[in-house]
């Protein structure tokens, strides 16, 4: 393999004809799509669990039972106040080091990472939902009460639908961030999209895999954005 190497002191990346070819694309796209599968799987698990969990957190924070409320507020602050990367490293590599019980806390890397993402994002979604609740006019509660609805009926039929609607744009935004944050799997050595791209870049001395990875991320976030646009239109209430 003949290569022109121009070094700028850093790993050399060089675009050559052969790496632009359809053949090269075919050999590299398969592992990258496998990586993307991991990325998407993690995203789906994290989003499917953290949204309901975040919602429960919101309710717990509003609970009249003070210890529960304070505990959940503390949890939310902890999760939002420390880097997600630190939390992932802690779950993957920190937990097993705890004397005595550490040996039982060695989780599968992917499971550990999914746990970390879920716990972290639940805190963000809880804050988003709390904001949604705060945005609801107290006249909605008063009208419901005068119409004879119970607290629970009011919450279920009047307040929650409005809360989810108000929260939707922020949830969309957070979901796109989650897609991109899955790249943090790289740090705990779970092979995902970015990992395969980087491996190929280092092995083949070509920058193309980074482009492919970028395009795949773009496609995922585009589809996701379209989905949320559709939801927003569907629940526009106009």
């Amino acid at each position: 393999m003949k290569q022109n190497r121009i070094s700028f002191g850093n790993p050399v990346l060089f675009v050559e004809e052969q790496f632009m070819s359809a053949d090269y694309f075919k050999t590299i796209i398969v592992p990258m799509l496998q990586g993307a599968e991991t990325t998407i799987l993690l995203f789906l698990i994290a989003i499917a669990v953290s949204i309901p969990l975040g919602f429960l957190l919101t309710l717990a924070v509003r609970s009249k039972f003070k210890p529960l409320s304070l505990l959940c507020q503390g949890y939310i602050h902890l999760m939002r106040g420390t880097p997600l990367l630190l939390q992932l490293l802690f779950i993957c590599f920190g937990l097993p080091l705890i004397p005595g019980i550490g040996q039982y806390l060695v989780l599968d890397r992917f499971v550990a990472a999914a746990l970390g993402f879920t716990l972290n994002y639940a805190a963000y979604f809880a804050e988003i939902f709390r904001g949604g609740l705060l945005a609801i006019d107290k006249g909605q509660y008063e009208a419901s009460k005068v119409l004879g609805l119970s607290r629970w009926q009011t919450t279920r039929k009047i307040i929650l639908p409005q809360m989810f609607r108000i929260a939707l744009p922020a949830v969309a935004n957070e979901s796109v961030t989650l897609v991109k944050d899955t790249a943090l799997l790289y740090a705990v050595a779970v092979p995902e999209l970015l990992h395969f791209a980087e491996t190929a870049v280092n092995r083949d001395f070509t920058i193309m895999p980074f482009f492919y990875a970028g395009v795949i991320y773009l496609i995922i976030t585009f589809v996701l954005s379209m989905f949320f646009r559709w939801l927003e239109r569907r629940f526009k209430f106009e």
């Binding site: 006019d137 006249g139 909605q140 008063e142 009208a143 419901s144 005068v146 119409l147 004879g148 609805l149 009926q153 039929k157 009047i158 639908p161 409005q162 609607r165 629940f235 209430f237």
Partner: peptide
């Protein structure tokens, strides 16, 4: 025994006119 009408209407924005009328009687 009493119904109330507010200055700022307090209609339920996520429900249609008919649903606004029917939500309470249906729940009750």
């Amino acid at each position: 025994r009493m119904g109330m009408v507010f200055q700022h209407f307090n209609l339920f924005p996520h429900l249609t006119v008919t649903e606004n009328l029917e939500v309470a009687p249906r729940m009750l």
